[in-house]
Design a protein around this nucleic acid. Structure first.
Lengths: 243, 243
DNA sequence: GACAACAGGATTGTTAACAATTTTGCATGC
DNA sequence: GCATGCAAAATTGTTAACAATCCTGTTGTC
């Protein structure tokens, strides 16, 4: 998710790693839906676009596939992931399991300084929201959760949650309501209140509520866009492949 | 960890994927400490050993590095991971955060059939232990935790925990006491008891206790083996690099 | 004798060409 | 008209060679 300040200087010199750059660019394109779910990613074309060799594109594909953002099919190629409804539900259930723990840990280790840090982030979220910058709002919303993970001081959790949040972003981009509801920013306020209450159970409960709310705002009942479901369009059951 | 039955047939034919095989073999070698922590992994040698091209070895390296089992240094090569003490502590803290949730979820969805499934696994653990098969005992011990993750029905959690358990195995292999204490098998019995109690808090508490116990059995105070710490050997403080 | 510069070898990074596979378009036959 | 088979094009998978980088041992100098 396009972190602005994490330039990640390489070996102290000003040299930028091209691999990271390509991963980031493809990531942004997927989350922006400039690359639509299901779209075929052709190695040669991407290699020319980025001015690198196919080998590097292949390596990048492995990373993206590991994060479940693309799908690698042997001898067929790479496709932008099309998370199913079941997958979407599972991802948010997994986040709830982990972020409950995060909320608990942050709640019991809360200090004035940390609360200020969170509040500072919330200000930026509100700002983006009032500016009407929907894209920035989504990114900042994800980074809010990442900030909490960072406050646990556990790098393992932080890294895993980062991937899970990216995956969530793809899911949200795919299934979000046509008219953006965006009530999320007040929920983060509630979350901060619960986190500063000092009661881990309260914090965990609020986190669960919030994640469920995000999930429930998605349109997880309609057929996936991009994959036309002719059977449902014409009111018939799909033909079964065997027997 | 050398799963016996998951043959993973490819496209229905009997053809085995060589990539998976190489990953598995290297994984086993690392966990067996036939490849010691810190050891340099030379692409050319491995390619000849497995009879494949360097490109495939490089791809395998990316996977292993993603799972933190090896360390990839630009222009220097690949090295078997040497998890630090801090890292070890973080991994077990992360597992506690996640597996607390797993235990809670399994406890509230416990059935007779599931209990029998767990008990069946415990029998195999005890069997390996009585046979004195230390290696099998370690593998089965890891798979016990994976079984619980699977019972949550959440593939996301299952996959992440699988990687975390592998990483734990490397940590255990690196830091375990010279004389294997192996009291773990009775702890799993206690865990089953807590899981069948129906109380999620009891289950989570027992899981926390168990993971802390594993961590505490490790020798996390001594300097890492394989990296001779001359300073402590000769009773001096290591020279600081700057100022 | 210690230290720096240097050359040779080893190893990784990159590119391009070739082989294998899949997809696509077209022709053929029913 | 529709399915089948075939051939060409497109794409992925693999290999080998070359370039860049790093490590090691040696030599020369102070």
């Amino acid at each position: 998710m396009a972190k602005a300040d994490e330039t990640g200087s390489y070996k102290g010199s000003g040299k930028l790693r091209p691999e990271e750059m390509i991963y980031q660019e493809m990531l942004d394109a997927i989350l922006d839906r400039r690359l639509e779910p299901g779209m075929k990613l052709i190695e040669e074309d991407l290699a020319q676009t980025f001015g690198v060799s196919r080998a590097r594109i292949r390596a990048t594909f492995l990373q993206l596939a590991h994060d479940k953002l693309i799908n690698l099919v042997p001898n067929r190629g790479a496709f932008v992931s099309e998370p199913t409804i079941d997958e979407a539900i599972e991802v948010f259930a997994a986040r709830r399991m982990i972020e409950d723990g995060v909320a608990r840990k942050v709640a019991v280790s809360m200090t004035d300084e940390r609360a200020a840090q969170i509040r500072n982030h919330l200000d930026r979220e509100h700002d983006a929201h009032h500016r009407g910058d929907h894209r920035a709002a989504i990114i900042l919303s994800g980074e809010f959760h990442l900030l909490l993970a960072r406050l646990t001081g556990n790098l393992v959790i932080e890294e895993f949650l980062e991937r899970l949040i990216l995956r969530s972003s793809l899911i949200i981009a795919m299934y979000e309501s046509p008219q953006p509801v965006d009530c999320s920013h007040t929920e983060h306020d509630d979350l901060l209140k619960a986190l500063t209450s000092g009661d881990p159970d309260v914090a965990a409960a609020e986190m669960s509520r919030h994640l469920d709310a995000i999930r429930d705002r998605l349109q997880l009942q309609r057929p996936k866009p991009g994959k036309t479901d002719f059977a449902s369009i014409f009111g018939r059951n799909p033909k079964s492949v065997a027997s």
